[in-house]
Write a protein that binds this DNA or RNA. Structure first.
Length: 423
RNA sequence: GGAGAGAUGGCAGAGCGGUUGAAUGCACCGGUCUUGAAAACCGGCGUACCGAGAGGUAUCGGGGGUUCGAAUCCCUCUCUCUCCGCCA
C-alpha cells in the first residue's frame, strides 16, 4: 500500500498518477485525508489523557507509600472520570485507524513516470521485438497436438487425477520441464541470485505482505483447516523472507531466486485462452526477487529485463517486450514489463514473464526497511520477475522449434535434457 | 493426536503490581589511551505514531480483563520447544 505520508504531502501527484490507471482516487483520497486529520486530532487528545493518567497514577503510588491514604483515595476518584473519557476516545481512534487502513488497501500503486496511460493491453507499449515470425513450409501444429503426438503431456490424465488445469507431464515432456528449471536456476545463479527452496504454503501475514491479500483472495487456494494459502508465485515466500526486517546499512542489494510450483485458482476463464498449457491451475516457475536501495531500483530493473531477454535468446525464441500501460499494470506494481513469445501455431503472443518494480508498495506492508547512514530507517524497494514461467515456454518451444520430423531442442538446453530432439 | 514447558530489546538472560523502556552480559557505534591494533576505560545503542520543537503516547508473542497503576495477576488465542504416538 501507499505510505500515508506520501498521500498527505503529494496528494495531487498521487491522484494525477493514478489517472493513468483509470483509477479516480480523488474521492477516496479526500475521505482518507479527512479521516486522517480527525484521527490525528483524536489521537493527540487521547494521548494527553493517557499522559495525565500516568502522572496521577505515579502520584497515587507515592501517596500510598507515604501513608497518605485519604489523599490517595481522592486522587483515585479523579482518575475514574479520565478513564471513561479515555475509553470512549479509544473507540473513536480505533475506528479511524480502521477506516484509514481500509482506504489505503483500496488504492493501487502510483505508476512510474514512464508508464503510459491506458485502459488495457491495447495501450501497452512495445519496447522491443527480437526475432521474426518463423516460416515452416508446412502446417505448424499447436502445442497441445504436438504434446499428444510425441506423448509429452497428458491433459486428460490430469483431469482424472485432479481436474482441468493440472496436466501430467511424462517422458521427455517431464524431462524437458526439469531441464528448463535447472537451466533457469543456473542462469540466475550466474547472474548473482542466491537460490532458495521456500515453502509452497504460506500464512495470512505473508499474503498481506506481498499484497495478494486482501484484494486477490480468490486467486489463491486456501487450506481452511490450517488457515494457510498455496502460493500463487514464489514471490510470496521469497519476499516475505524479509518481512519485518531492518537491514543494518545502506549498502545492500539482495538477489534471490527460487523454483516453485505455483497454484492459481483463476476462476472464470474459458475457451481458447485456456487451451493446452496456456493457463493452468498448477505450473512451474523460476522467480527472481530483488530488494534494493531506492537509488538502485532503476538499475536493478534494467538488469532483470536483460536477464530475461538473455534467457529467451538462448532458447531461440521470437519475443517482444512490452511496457504495460496504467490500466494493465498490476495493483501493487509501479511499472511492469511483460515478455511475450510468439506462438507460431496459435498465431498469437503468449506472456512468459512479467518483471515489476513495486518501489515501497510492498515494503510498507512488509515493514522492510534499512538504516541510513545517519541512523534513520527508510523503506526498501522490492522488485520481482519470472525467469521464467514454464508452461508457455514449453508451448512455444514445441511450436516454434517443430520440424516435420521432430522438435529441435535449443543448444543451450541440451546439456540439461540430454537429448537434442523430441521425435 | 496425547502430556508437559515456555514466549522479555540484535543475541543471551534478570525482573518484587508502583519512578522498569525494562538489570546484567555479549554484539554494535562514538570517544579516550596507542605508532597502529588489542585490552582497558567513558559515552551511546530498539521500534512506531503524534508534535515545528520541547516533549508525549504505545510497545516485554496477539487480544481481552482485574487495578488508581500490569512485563509482573486472571481469561483467551497463536506460536515455539520437550516427551509419547503416528508417519515420509
Amino acid at each position: 500500500m501507499l505510505e500515508i505520508q506520501r498521500i498527505r504531502t503529494e496528494k495531487e501527484a498521487v491522484i494525477e498518477g493514478l489517472k493513468k490507471r483509470n483509477f479516480d482516487a480523488s474521492a477516496i483520497v479526500e475521505n482518507l485525508l479527512d479521516i486522517d486529520q480527525q484521527w490525528r486530532t483524536s489521537k493527540t487528545e487521547l494521548e494527553s489523557i493517557a499522559a495525565e493518567q500516568n502522572v496521577l497514577s505515579k502520584e497515587i503510588g507515592d501517596l500510598f507509600k507515604q501513608g497518605k491514604q485519604e489523599e490517595a483515595n481522592a486522587a483515585k476518584a479523579k482518575t475514574a472520570e479520565l478513564k471513561t473519557k479515555e475509553a470512549a476516545l479509544k473507540v473513536t481512534v480505533d475506528e479511524f485507524e480502521n477506516q484509514i487502513t481500509q482506504f489505503l488497501y483500496q488504492i493501487p500503486n502510483v505508476p512510474n513516470n514512464l508508464v503510459p496511460a491506458g485502459k488495457n493491453e491495447l495501450d501497452n507499449i512495445t519496447v522491443e521485438e527480437v526475432g521474426s515470425k518463423k516460416e515452416f513450409g508446412f502446417a505448424a501444429q499447436p502445442h497441445w497436438d504436438l504434446a499428444k503426438k510425441y506423448d509429452l503431456i497428458d491433459f486428460e490424465l490430469g483431469v482424472k487425477i485432479t481436474g482441468a488445469g493440472f496436466p501430467v507431464y511424462k517422458g521427455k515432456g517431464a524431462k524437458l520441464q526439469r531441464a528448463l528449471i535447472a537451466f533457469f536456476l543456473d542462469e540466475a545463479e550466474k547472474a548473482g541470485y542466491q537460490e532458495f527452496t521456500p515453502p509452497l504454503v504460506v500464512n495470512e501475514a505473508s499474503g498481506y505482505g506481498t499484497g495478494q491479500l486482501p484484494d486477490k483472495e480468490g486467486q489463491m487456494y486456501y487450506i481452511n483447516e490450517d488457515d494457510l494459502y498455496l502460493i500463487p508465485t514464489a514471490e510470496v515466500p521469497l519476499t516475505n523472507i524479509y518481512r519485518d526486517v531492518i537491514l543494518p546499512s545502506e549498502d545492500f542489494s539482495i538477489k534471490m531466486t527460487g523454483y516453485t510450483p505455483c497454484f492459481r485458482r483463476e476462476a472464470g476463464s474459458y475457451g481458447k485462452d485456456v487451451r493446452g498449457l496456456n493457463r493452468l491451475h498448477q505450473f512451474d516457475k523460476v522467480e527472481i526477487v530483488r530488494i534494493e536501495h531506492p537509488s538502485n531500483t532503476e538499475k536493478a530493473l534494467t538488469e532483470m529485463i536483460n536477464h530475461v531477454k538473455g534467457l529467451l535468446e538462448k532458447l531461440g525464441l521470437h519475443y517482444r517486450v512490452l511496457r504495460l500501460c496504467g490500466g494493465d499494470t498490476g495493483f501493487a506494481s509501479a511499472m511492469t514489463y511483460d515478455f511475450e513469445v510468439y506462438s507460431a501455431a496459435q498465431e498469437k503472443w503468449l506472456e512468459v514473464s512479467s518483471v515489476s518494480r513495486f518501489d515501497t508498495f510492498q515494503s510498507t506492508r512488509l515493514k522492510l526497511r534499512f538504516k541510513t547512514n545517519d541512523k534513520k530507517t527508510q523503506l526498501c524497494h522490492t522488485l520481482n520477475g519470472s525467469a521464467l514461467a514454464l508452461p508457455r515456454i514449453v508451448a512455444s518451444l514445441l511450436e516454434n522449434h517443430q520440424t516435420e520430423n521432430g522438435i529441435v531442442i535449443p543448444e543451450a538446453l541440451r546439456p540439461y535434457t540430454g537429448f537434442d530432439r523430441i521425435d
